[in-house]
Design a protein around this nucleic acid. Structure first.
Length: 204
DNA sequence: TTCATGATAAGG
DNA sequence: CTTATCATGAAC
C-alpha cells in the first residue's frame, strides 16, 4: 500500500507517525522530518479538533485540508511565517499533519543561507516557520502533491524512527492537552514545549 | 518576558 | 467595514 492510501485511512496519530522520520525535498534541499503535530476536523467528524483550522469547516485558507490526502497545505501565521502540513483523511474530511522541525540532509548551504539568524545546524529547520523557510516553501506550492515524484515538494521514505515521543501540541489555545505532537526522541532540533498563554485550563 | 506583523474569518 | 485572534520567532 502506498503512502497516500495509508494517509487516507489513518487516524491523526497514525498520520503523524507516517510522516515523522520521512524525508521531504523542495528544490535542492532535503530534510528528515523530526517533529510533527496532527490536526483533525470538524465537529461530528471522526476526529473533531477545536485546535484545527479545519474545525470550522472549509474556508478559502484551509480548503486543501478537505481535499485528497498527501497534499501540501501552506498557510501564513502571525502575518509573518509560513507553515506547512501534509493532508490526511479521505476527500471531503479535514485533516493535516503540521511539519514542525527537520534535520537538513542535503542542500545544507542553501538552507543555511535562508536562515541567517540560525546560530547552528540544529536551529536551521527547528520550529514550523523556520522549517518551511529553510526548505524554501512559498505560497504558490499550496496544494502540491507530495506523493508525486515530479512534484516540487515531495516525501520519500526513510529509515523508521527508533523511538517516537508523544506530547501536547505547542501554542494551541484549544484542546491544549491533546497529545498529538510526535517527535524523534532525543533529537536536538525538536522545539521546546510552549503552552498557549490562554490555553484551556481543564483537560481537553 | 515582550512585541512585530498582516491575513483571516466572524461579527456588526 | 471592523476587529480579535493567531498551529511563531527573535530580541531583550
Amino acid at each position: 500500500m502506498d503512502l497516500r492510501t495509508h494517509l487516507e485511512h489513518a487516524s491523526p496519530v497514525e498520520a503523524a507517525a507516517l510522516v515523522l522520520g520521512q524525508k521531504i525535498t523542495c528544490g535542492t534541499v532535503t530534510a528528515r522530518i523530526v517533529e510533527v503535530e496532527a490536526y483533525g476536523g470538524q465537529p461530528g467528524s471522526n476526529w473533531p479538533d477545536p485546535a484545527s483550522h479545519a474545525y470550522r469547516g472549509r474556508t478559502q485558507r484551509n480548503f486543501v485540508m478537505f481535499g485528497p490526502p498527501g497534499h501540501l497545505y501552506v498557510y501564513r501565521i502571525y502575518g509573518v511565517h509560513l507553515c506547512m502540513n501534509v493532508t490526511f483523511g479521505s476527500e471531503g474530511h479535514g485533516g493535516g499533519v503540521l511539519l514542525r522541525a527537520g534535520e537538513i540532509v542535503a542542500g545544507t548551504a542553501m538552507a543555511q543561507s535562508r536562515r541567517p539568524a540560525a546560530r547552528n545546524a540544529r536551529d536551521v529547520a527547528s520550529g514550523p516557520g523556520n522549517f518551511a523557510c529553510a526548505l524554501g516553501i512559498t505560497p504558490d506550492l499550496q496544494g502540491s502533491d507530495v506523493c508525486d515524484p515530479a512534484s516540487p515538494v515531495r516525501l520519500d521514505v526513510a529509515e523508521p524512527v527508533r523511538k517516537i515521543a508523544y506530547g501536547p501540541r505547542v501554542g494551541v489555545r484549544h484542546a491544549a492537552s491533546t497529545p498529538w505532537r510526535l517527535w524523534v526522541d532525543g533529537h536536538a532540533s525538536v522545539s521546546r514545549y510552549r503552552r498557549h498563554p490562554k490555553a484551556d485550563t481543564l483537560q481537553n
